[in-house]
Design a protein around this nucleic acid. Structure first.
Length: 839
RNA sequence: GCGGACGUGGCGGAACGGUAGACGCUGGGGACUUAAAAUCCUCUUCCCGUGAAGGGAGUGCGGGUUCAAAUCCCGCCGUCCGCACCA
């Protein structure tokens, strides 16, 4: 009998052995069925916390399980290595972003290795490596040549102190998150990818993704935001700045006779022409632009308008004039930047009309009889029957809308159309630590692609971060180049890509990584699409949409024949932890506090500590648990086991000391079983059935990614084996248990396999199979109910016929007492399950 | 406001419409030990019943369908998440 299982020693030994034998290297030429398991690659922040560990453990279980089932598995790992934090570190500590990033990668790689993941490290990649981003630049040029890239002026959040563009998330209460300076809206020329070209494909494609969470599909659907409607023109009674019409879009053409006004956005050409001559209009336009973009501000913002004095003619009645306003709630970048207002049937228009005393007319009612019912305290937005609408009266909302579109198209003043909420993807970032955009701007030739033989365009190393702004732009020589087309003096694009570009194709590069091309089509298609992609729900929209777009763009270019990159998607929950605060309000880490009865105290000074909410692990609240600490204390397997055990994987998992202790106990129990010797003779039928049921149940649970259920069944099996007498069945059960825990606790499994004297590695062993005949017992327990309430259970031979089951149930003492002599009215028998006596 | 998910013991959670609470954590009792740790055994939804037998209540609330509802339907309440002036 060996003593306790020593994870520190065993983990290291088996990790070395797997590496030596290159167990997890994926062979693209293998004849086995191929499975691609992928977890979202991490940003190399420097530390791997247990949240990462949970994500990778789930993927690892699936990868190892598929391997044992005889699949050739691709399970790679890499680094989403460009981004802001590296530049912040450079500014704060004077370290080069590359140095910082690479040392973080080295540290996190070791942390991952200590968790024993079955990863193909030979395919590791980092997006900040020119060997990666050079290919990305080539792909961008492919898109450019295919007309999927353009440059246009666009409004951005500009931090005047840091002299950089900020993402919306980086604007907090109207101020830059780093500088604290009030953010300005500024127009800047930016590169865009034509994702809107694929809006409908991306929307339709969602229907094929039946192995994606419903939630994510709905989120993407809403994000793409398809609306059908009518786009049409109102004629101005007098032209403004050469314009004679105001073009509007509506999803409710049926309400056209309820129109009270027309409103245009502050950025609309008409508003701009007016502002040029009308000082008050100019003032109003400026006011609109000053308004913040935060959700809170929008919510509380009043509907405001400026009456321009202009009028338009109703398209269905030349005598009918409507006033034109500039309004703060009309968006320039949706639809046409102008609307017609129907206060009776739109919340915003109602609010606006109330403010400015415009008519509120009912044109839709629940029934024709209610035509004269006034609109009450709020707009009536539900569909119904058209009323007060001349030739539309009596038609349903849908019919009326169709009728208006038909007339508009026939008369030529408008047409039925589709609008999307989705905008083109702006990929320019005024930052250093990103992929340089491979374009040269020539004063005479315009934007010229960098010639392919000059790729990659590599970031210069000699940059400084001591002053704000983009170091690439400041660099003395980097941007000055000759135009590849005309040879004249030209400038490199100094913007870099949004890091979402980097993550939009990394899964393809993992599958195939030739040096002279982004990927080899035939090889990539052997692995793709990803069978199971696992990551956080925070990427439900952007990353997953961009990756889907990129894949479809490559398909259009004929580079990859695949519409959807991720066959199965799983979004796992976060790992949370209680938070602690000292009396002065400062946050304390879990290491700094201890329990004192029902309360918590600060270890250092014994002062009481307030235990706060259970929250997502975050640096600022100091409730992050580092994976290394846990691995050192309990070993990789206990950590993995706990991360899989306590909660369903899609839900949050609360990290608890008790939970990891329990996992650690289980590791030792299995070790003890593997080391328990006994006779190998004799059968144990009950244990055999339990074993086969467990094989079946654990397999199903892993297939469904319900790891918590797999774990629970393995606990049960272990307990059953512990209680069983020595037998051949028991010895077999122990061997099988070792195989069944292998995907979750691989080091322990190898170690047990070894002491059991088995050949080879568990990592290469086949997954156990079960005998369906062994899943059923000869004896079953029948529930006996009276009027649906359980009164007794009886043991019966399996397959007992209806009459015998009834008789058995009626012979129960409890049942007889319940019936009190009365004859049953009806007896329901569910074979081998229950008998329900209706009295 | 719109969309989505969820609501089960002290806690995390199990449960093809068919024995609610598997499994884990916590807690109680016990064994081993000079003692402790570790380990093992055992109990642990609530109420009545000394106990056992037995009975009652019970899956957010109120209805309904069904021989039978945590599960299906209708209406509320609550929590969480996403989007948000998208015409």
């Amino acid at each position: 009998m060996t003593g306790r299982f020593d994870p520190n020693e065993a983990d290291r030994r088996w990790q070395a052995r797997w590496a030596e034998e290159a167990c997890f290297a994926a062979d693209s030429d293998s004849d086995k069925p191929k499975t691609y398991v992928l977890e979202m690659f991490p940003y190399p922040s420097g530390r791997l916390h247990v949240g990462h560990a949970r994500n990778y453990t789930m993927g690892d279980v699936l990868a190892r399980y598929r391997r044992m089932q005889g699949h050739e598995v691709l399970h790679p790992m890499g680094w989403d290595a460009f981004g802001m934090p590296a530049e912040n570190a450079a500014m704060e500590r004077g370290i080069h972003p590359g140095t910082w990033t690479r040392s973080n990668i080295a540290a996190m790689r070791e942390q991952l290795k200590r968790l024993g993941f079955a990863l193909d490290w030979s395919r590791e990649l980092a997006t900040c490596d020119p060997a990666y981003y050079g290919h990305e630049q080539a792909l961008f040029l492919d898109l450019f040549e295919a007309g999927l890239v353009y440059r246009k002026e666009s409004e951005v959040n500009w931090d005047p102190v840091d002299m950089t563009v900020l993402a919306n998330e980086q604007v907090i209460d109207g101020r830059g998150w780093r500088s604290g300076a009030p953010v300005e809206r500024r127009k800047l020329a930016q590169w865009f990818l034509k994702i809107t070209d694929f809006a409908d494909d991306l929307l339709e494609g969602l229907k094929t993704l039946d192995q994606w969470p419903e939630k994510v599909r709905v989120m993407q659907e809403n994000w793409i935001g398809k609306s059908r409607g009518l786009q049409f023109r109102f004629r101005l009674t007098e032209p403004v700045g050469g314009t004679e019409d105001v073009e509007v879009f509506t999803t409710r053409p049926d309400t056209i006779f309820g129109a009270s006004f027309v409103a245009v956005a502050a950025d609309h050409p008409i508003a701009r022409s007016l502002a040029a001559t009308d000082a008050k209009a100019a003032e109003f336009v400026a006011e609109c632009k000053a308004g913040g973009t935060s959700a809170a501000e929008i919510e509380t913002a009043e509907k405001k308008g400026y009456a321009t004095g202009l009028e338009v003619v109703h398209p269905l009645d030349p005598e009918w004039r409507l006033p034109v306003y500039i309004a703060n709630f009309v968006l320039m970048d949706y639809g046409t930047g102008a609307i017609f207002g129907v206060p009776g049937h739109d919340h915003r228009d109602f609010e606006f009309a109330t403010q400015y005393d415009l008519p509120i007319q009912r044109v839709v009612a629940a029934s024709s009889e209610l035509a004269s019912e006034p609109i009450g305290e709020e707009a009536a937005c539900s569909p119904g029957i058209a009323v007060n609408s001349r030739f539309l009266d009596g038609l349903t909302t849908t019919q009326a809308a169709a009728e208006i579109i038909r007339r508009a198209e026939a008369a030529g003043w408008g047409h039925g159309t589709v609008q999307y909420r989705l905008r083109d993807w702006g990929v320019s970032r005024q930052r250093y630590w990103g992929t340089p955009i491979p374009i040269i701007r020539c004063p005479s030739c315009g934007p010229v692609p960098v010639p392919r033989d000059q790729l990659p365009v590599v970031l210069p190393e000699d940059v400084s971060f001591d002053s704000p702004g983009n170091p690439l732009d400041r660099h003395p020589s980097w941007k000055h180049v000759k135009c590849p087309a005309c040879g004249g003096a030209a400038m490199r694009e100094t913007d870099t890509f949004d890091t979402f570009v980097d993550s939009s194709w990394y899964f393809i590069r993992f599958a195939s990584q030739p040096t002279d091309a982004p990927f080899d089509r035939a090889e990539a298609e052997k692995w793709l699409p990803v069978a199971q992609y696992i990551g956080g729900v925070e990427h439900a929209i952007l990353h997953l949409l961009y990756a889907r777009f990129w894949t479809r763009a490559l398909q259009r270019l004929g580079k990859l024949d695949m519409a959807e990159p991720f066959n199965g998607l799983f979004t796992q929950g976060m790992v949370t932890h209680e938070t602690y605060r000292a009396g002065d309000g400062s946050w304390l880490s879990p290491d700094e506090v201890k329990r004192d009865g029902d309360d918590w105290v600060h270890i250092e000074d014994g002062h009481p500590v307030i235990a706060g909410r259970v929250e997502k692990m975050s640096k600022s609240k100091r409730n992050v648990i580092d994976s290394d600490t846990i691995v050192q204390r309990y070993g990789a397997d206990a950590a993995r086991w706990f991360l899989l055990s306590d909660s369903p994987p899609e839900r949050d998992l609360e990290w608890s000391e008790g939970g990891i202790e329990g996992a650690s106990r289980f590791v030792q129990r299995v070790w003890k079983l593997a080391n328990s010797t006994g006779t190998d003779d004799g059968e144990d039928a009950a244990l055999g059935r339990k074993l086969h049921r467990t094989i079946s149940g654990v397999s199903d649970a892993i297939e469904a990614l319900q790891f918590n259920k797999a774990v629970a069944q393995l606990y049960e099996l272990a307990s059953t084996i512990e209680k069983a007498r020595p037998s051949a069945t028991r010895a077999d059960a122990i061997r099988t248990l070792v195989l069944l825990i292998a995907p979750m606790a691989p080091h322990l499994a190898e170690e047990c396999w070894f002491v059991l004297g088995r050949e080879g590695l568990v990592a290469n062993a086949p997954w156990p199979s079960f005998d369906p005949a062994m899943l059923v017992d000869d004896q079953v327990t029948l529930a006996v109910q009276v009027n649906g309430k359980l009164r007794d259970t009886v043991t019966a031979p399996r397959g007992l016929d209806r009459a015998a089951a009834e008789a058995l149930a009626l012979s129960s003492e409890n049942v007889r007492r319940q019936l009190a002599g009365a004859a049953p009215r009806k007896i329901i028998v569910v074979p081998d399950r229950l008998v329900n006596i209706v009295a």
